[in-house]
């Protein structure tokens, strides 16, 4: 928890909830649920392709593979509706929806997507612009409770509503079409500048989109090259390969660096977990030496990620289990 988190105080705490006079309702619900038929079913466990360093490993491979599956693939609760896995934009999501901003001094800084939405961020100094593509069924929710003056506009060829939060903070929601709508936010500029800016939003093709990406952005076209570069001078376990880095689609340089470093760290924890004394020493040595990994040094200013690697060996020497530590870096 950071200093800003307590400012986001809850409307009601769990302690206050526990004091609510709901004893009868709680008991009734418990009994009602337990009176419903059980629909247990046996599902085959999800099988994942073993990563290279596990294939190269020996006796501990099976145990490590189970641990890896729970961490990388199935860490979320397993109930019928599948969790929405958020990940860097996949090409399928972007297909036909490439946007470009024609505005001098503005750079695309973020590309992000999940299964039904996509987010593009541009920035210019202290000014920022975010364009979200979200499902059409959220249109009413986006407009509900809107207050203040609303100005009709046209954006990306669609009728839209624009309003201001403040004199320098603006929002626009377009009519839905093709199953999605655009939600636009911009900060740091007066109304006229905002209207000029969003007039520069245009549909583009794949080539145009690629050309606007920040240098170093991981894309489907350069994925392996970027990852190979990020792995330079990084101590990796035997058998570790590009396919063991779970990055697909588009990713900013920082995100890609964290993804690569995390994959390597996770692999070393797998080596340590159930490994021989020699293998465990190799893992400890790798974490000890991680401060010199260029990939971690490149993101040293972006947070505490490199520090986590440095203290990983200390934690392991103090008896913390590899499985316990995996969620910190995997």
């Amino acid at each position: 928890m950071t200093p800003i988190d307590p400012m986001i105080g809850p409307t009601i705490t769990d302690q206050e909830v526990a004091l609510l006079p709901l004893a009868d309702g709680r008991v009734d619900l418990l009994e009602e649920i337990m009176a419903t038929p059980v629909l247990d079913h046996a599902e085959p466990p999800t099988r994942r392709t073993p990563p290279g360093w596990l294939v190269a490993g020996a006796a501990a491979a099976a145990v490590a593979a189970i641990a890896l599956g729970s961490t990388l693939g199935g860490g979320s609760p397993a109930d019928p509706p599948e969790p929405r896995i958020l990940q860097p934009a996949a090409p399928a999501v972007l297909d036909g929806r490439y946007l470009e901003l024609n505005a001098a001094g503005w750079e695309l800084t973020w590309v992000y997507a999940d299964e039904d939405s996509l987010s593009l961020d541009w920035s210019s100094g202290e000014q920022s612009l975010t364009v979200l593509q979200i499902p059409a069924e959220l249109y009413d929710a986006r407009l509900r409770n809107r207050q203040g003056e609303v100005r009709p506009t046209t954006v990306l060829g669609r009728d839209a509503a624009t309003w201001a939060y403040t004199s320098t903070d603006h929002a626009t929601v377009t009519e839905p079409a093709g199953g999605f709508l655009y939600e636009i936010r911009a900060e740091g500029m007066p109304r006229g500048a905002y209207e000029d800016l969003i007039a520069g939003l245009v549909q583009t093709d794949e080539a145009g989109f690629y050309a606007a990406l920040p240098e170093g952005t991981l894309t489907p076209a350069n994925r392996d090259d970027v990852i190979r570069e990020l792995l330079a001078d990084v101590d990796t376990p035997d058998g570790f390969g590009l396919e063991d880095v779970g990055l697909e689609g588009f990713a900013s340089t920082t995100y890609a660096a964290q993804g690569v470093a995390g994959a390597v760290g996770c692999a070393w924890l797998d080596v340590y977990d159930g490994g021989s004394s020699v293998e465990q020493e190799s893992a400890l040595a790798a974490f000890d030496g991680s401060r010199d990994w260029p990939v971690l040094r490149s993101i040293d200013r972006q947070g505490d990620y490199p520090e986590i690697f440095e203290i990983m060996a200390d934690y392991l020497r103090r008896g913390r289990s590899a499985a316990e530590l995996k969620p910190d870096i995997c």
Binding site: M7, G75, S76, P77, I85, L86, G262, P327, C330
Partner: peptide, 21 residues
């Protein structure tokens, strides 16, 4: 993070994404 006071690794479990993300 603020209301449920979850750590990043715990949020990762809830959201079904990696702790890195």
């Amino acid at each position: 993070a603020a209301w449920e006071e979850l750590e990043p690794r715990e949020i990762a479990e809830v959201l079904g994404i990696s702790a890195v993300a």
